[in-house]
């Protein structure tokens, strides 16, 4: 753990990643203190200061109804992170359990679980989400549900492949010969050996979930106004390019920072934890 941290901070690229992630997470947590106009996350209208270019008061300018863009971006980070954490918190355990038992038990269990996974994997993720959002109300809650539904099969695949190869290891045979139960072998013996890979994928996926959620919002199917969301901010601003460039450039940069940061950290983790095995 300590070693991982040291390596993470020593490599320049992963250090940048750590700084970016810290920036995003800290501003999301302390949004109330950092944002110059906390009330602008809601439906505030200020027709005196609308659509203003970046200036001393509004460093990233204001949007079409006069809200401070900087404040809204900081609150949007909060939404993105919450979305990412909730999606991964649900998708990861489901996918992990499916993959773990399919990979270890084999036979019919493997067949049923993995074909189910394949069905989900065969549908393009965004299409699945759009279809679900078409049926359901476009709310934050449903956006999370849609993204989760398309996310767990990737974890099932990942864990399935690791569990398949771990099944051949001597320690699994040892536990079987002793007579340990299947849940014990899957959860206590094999799962710990899958955790580094799962953790790495989760870090990488934070970035992707943020992108997908933004895409949904961009299409008008995700987070609804007046809640600030990076994707819908870009979508809204796109109509006023290139004159009001700040409306798209700053939210776009914010997406870039978050995604790039999580990816750098994820890549570094993959290298560090992979080398451990």
């Amino acid at each position: 753990m300590k070693r991982t941290l040291v390596i993470l901070l020593r490599n320049p690229l992963s250090l940048i990643g750590v700084i970016l992630v810290a920036l995003v997470v800290l501003s999301a947590i302390f949004a109330d203190f950092i944002a110059p106009f906390p009330e602008h996350r809601g439906s505030v209208v200020d027709f005196v200061n609308f659509n203003k270019a970046p200036n001393a008061t509004n460093i990233m300018g204001t949007d079409l109804v006069g809200r401070d863009l900087f404040s809204r971006i900081i609150y949007a980070f909060r939404i993105s992170l919450v979305l990412g954490v909730v999606v991964l918190a649900i998708a990861t355990p489901i996918g992990t359990l499916v993959g773990l038992f399919a990979g270890y038990v084999g036979g019919k269990t493997e067949f049923i679980l993995m074909r189910l996974t394949d069905v989900f994997l065969s549908i393009p993720p965004l299409v699945l989400a759009i279809a679900m959002m078409g049926v359901l109300e476009p709310t934050l809650m449903n956006a999370m549900l849609a993204v989760t539904a398309m996310w767990w099969p990737w974890y099932a695949r990942l864990v399935y492949n690791i569990a398949r190869s771990e099944r051949e290891e001597g320690y699994v045979l040892a536990a079987e010969v002793i007579g340990a139960s299947t849940p014990h072998i899957a959860l206590r013996e094999i799962l710990p050996n899958c955790l580094p890979a799962i953790l790495t994928k989760m870090t990488l996926d934070m970035g992707f979930v943020i992108i997908i959620a933004s895409s949904l919002s961009f299409l008008g199917l995700g987070v609804q106004p007046p809640t600030p969301d990076l994707g819908s901010m870009v979508a809204e601003g796109a109509r006023y390019l290139p004159d009001s460039w700040w409306l798209t450039v700053f939210p776009g940069l914010a997406i870039l920072i978050a995604v790039f940061g999580f990816n750098l950290v994820g890549d570094a983790l993959r290298e560090i934890l992979g080398a451990d095995q």
């Binding site: 001597g170 320690y171 045979l173 040892a174 010969v177 002793i178 007579g179 710990p192 955790l195 095995q277």
Partner: peptide
């Protein structure tokens, strides 16, 4: 029976779980 008949494998690197 299981407790009475035990196994010691060739490769102790793999027969002990690295994460436990």
């Amino acid at each position: 029976h299981r407790s009475a008949i035990q196994l010691v494998q060739q490769n102790p690197l793999s027969s002990l779980n690295p994460k436990r």
